[in-house]
């Protein structure tokens, strides 16, 4: 079965969705990602959806689920690169992706993840003293 690759880069996991996902593939990605977060102890997940032509309620739910699951596993999720037409459609459909952080591009997304990991470390650091 086809699979969406998950790349590890330092503390973070990178996923670029480049195919029109059928529902089972989206569910498989959700499972793969949570497993990989726990195996690699990654602290951030960046999902690039710049080539996705649509986000319907199923894919939207998958993104929300991934964000929620990774948070429980101590990792932040940032979704980057949503096309403007997709954003307009998503909101009219009634989805606002609760709990999902977004950034306009990969650079901004990485910046967000780094800042959030740094903030977490500082918080724990200050508690130790």
């Amino acid at each position: 079965m086809e699979k969406i690759p998950i790349l590890k880069m330092g503390d973070f996991l990178l996923v670029t969705i480049q195919v029109d996902m059928h529902d089972r593939l989206a569910l498989a990605l959700q499972d793969d990602l949570t497993r990989t977060i726990s195996q690699t102890e990654a602290h951030g997940v960046l999902i690039d959806i710049s080539t996705l032509e649509i986000v319907d309620s199923f894919i939207g739910r998958m993104l929300s689920n991934i964000a929620a699951m990774s948070r429980v596993l101590d990792a932040e999720t940032v979704v980057v690169g949503m096309q403007p037409a997709v954003a307009i459609t998503l909101v009219e459909l009634g989805l606002s992706l609760p709990g999902v952080r977004t950034a306009l591009n990969v650079d901004a997304g990485m910046e967000l993840l780094r800042a959030s990991v740094k903030a977490t470390k500082e918080m724990y650091g200050s508690r130790l003293h």
Binding site: I54, D56, S57, Q83, P84, A85, I88, T89, L93
Partner: peptide, 14 residues
């Protein structure tokens, strides 16, 4: 238009 295409594709998907 691209927005209208995206809307009807999304509706069709649902």
């Amino acid at each position: 238009s691209l927005v209208d295409q995206t809307k009807i594709i999304t509706a069709a998907s649902e």
